[in-house]
Design a binder for these strands. Structure first.
Lengths: 153, 153
DNA sequence: TTTTTAGTTCTGCAACAAGAGAACTAAAAT
DNA sequence: ATTTTAGTTCTCTTGTTGCAGAACTAAAAA
């Protein structure tokens, strides 16, 4: 079902996902749905190829769906669910990650307001950081738009 | 020692740090070193203001130093260490986070090489994603340089 | 030399996460 | 009506994390 190369890639993808905080099972499911020749796989196909228990498979798939990385479709006259990667959303998820950093600007601005005026250098580094976070939070979405435009032309 | 507002901010900062994967103790130490009027605090000052045990304080500080968020200085004729936020490095740490995403481009390119040619739409979404990740990984450092230049002028 | 200081390390516990296996469930097939 | 299918949920085990409290250590002070 899977070549050695594919298995290797699943592990490689798995490791990076684990570093990003996902569990081994979820990480491997995401990997499998990227490298598999069939992009739509059933519960049991996933369970078997990854050697997971039913519970682990069920939980992993539900988590993967909750974090918007996997969805399933059904086929007429077939009770099984066919799970597949929501790969077209990955880009949005990446952007969401970038955007999450923006909240630091607001928090750090609040800190600035409360800081005593004696610590000049520190306060300056703080406002500098706020400026940086605001700059990046503003420019990164702009970059995104640029990329989209480049693509359409 | 701390106003209510400062305590509030420590918790607020703490929560965001926890969401980023740090433990409660480390998260609060980082918060304290941002909001405290004295930017250099001793072990015992940190321990007392945060109501931590010695071991928790020790571990939290060592972790905070390992992740490059805190350092300590010493003063002549004083055995105590004075811990302080490495706030000027935060910017770099943020960039490091951004840069970490770049590795997906390489992995996903490997996936592209192994994919069967039947799944045209999927493969296209994949190469599209690779292109996006590469674009962002290239442009974000450029943004950084722009920000630095804007600042000096 | 003994005591104090400024931490570190060890021990133990409570809480939680990951996953296996078995029991369960609801719909569909027979 | 009963069996099969396609999962879900429960129970249990194992491992990990976060922290407190106590024991420890190495350098400095008395």
């Amino acid at each position: 079902m899977l070549t050695d190369r594919q298995k290797e890639l699943i592990e490689k993808i798995g490791l990076v996902h684990e570093q990003e905080g996902l569990s081994p099972a979820v990480s491997r499911v995401l990997g499998l749905l990227l490298v598999s020749d069939q992009i739509e796989l059933t519960f049991d196909e996933i369970r078997e190829t990854l050697n997971l228990s039913k519970s682990a498979t069920s939980n992993a798939l539900n988590i993967a769906m909750k974090i918007n990385r996997v969805e399933y479709i059904t086929k007429p006259g077939d009770r099984k669910r066919y799970f597949r990667s929501k790969i077209h959303l990955w880009r949005e998820n990446l952007m969401a990650d970038y955007r999450k950093k923006a909240c630091w600007a607001d928090i750090l601005k609040e800190v600035c307001k409360c800081r005593c005026s004696e610590t000049k250098e520190f306060n300056h580094a703080l406002t500098d950081l706020v400026d940086f976070v605001e700059y990046m939070s503003q420019e990164i979405p702009r970059l995104y738009k640029c990329w989209e435009q480049d693509k359409t032309k």
